[in-house]
């Protein structure tokens, strides 16, 4: 077993990600199924309010690395073209949207707390459209 250990590359300023949309999600993102994006490697200050931030680890001089929660927020601000209510509910994706990180169900990867690496592929699939 070789667990992939991501290189601790705090110097890089952006992460290059591949985003894929399916099941109708693409309609909310310029009707394009595949997007290549670069997002900040660290959550820019001021960070979005987190519900359970413990003050001890939340020192302002150590910026938080970008996780999927931040990605979702970033997508809303930067590439979502319509109807945010069909993408998000509260601070995360709406129930009924499946998220895969590098082809693994995000429920196995810590969901929104998964820390993104350069080159990650994240897939969003809506299950809400008729079959």
């Amino acid at each position: 077993m070789t667990p992939p250990t991501p290189p601790e590359n705090t110097s890089s300023k952006t992460l290059n990600l591949k985003l894929e949309f399916g099941g109708g999600m693409e309609l909310l993102f310029s009707n394009k199924r595949s997007h290549r994006v670069s997002i900040p490697a660290h959550v820019p200050a001021p960070p979005p309010p987190t519900a359970s931030a413990s003050p001890a680890t939340d020192r302002p001089d150590t910026p938080r690395p970008s996780d999927v929660n931040y990605l979702i927020h970033w997508m809303k601000e930067n590439i979502l073209t319509e109807r945010v209510e069909l993408f998000m509910e509260g601070d995360t994706v709406r129930p009924g949207i499946l998220v895969m990180i590098n082809d693994v169900d995000w429920e196995l990867e810590g969901e929104g707390e998964y820390v993104l690496k350069d080159g990650d592929e994240v897939v969003f699939i809506s299950t809400l459209h008729g079959g």
């Binding site: 399916g22 109708g24 499946l98 082809d103 809506s126 299950t127 008729g130 079959g131």
Partner: peptide
């Protein structure tokens, strides 16, 4: 479960259409 049907289609790369009426 719907989730498993969608996952199945995804991993089998089945060709389906998804738009609301």
């Amino acid at each position: 479960y719907e989730k498993e049907i969608v996952m199945y289609a995804y991993f089998k790369k089945l060709d389906y259409f998804s738009t609301e009426c």
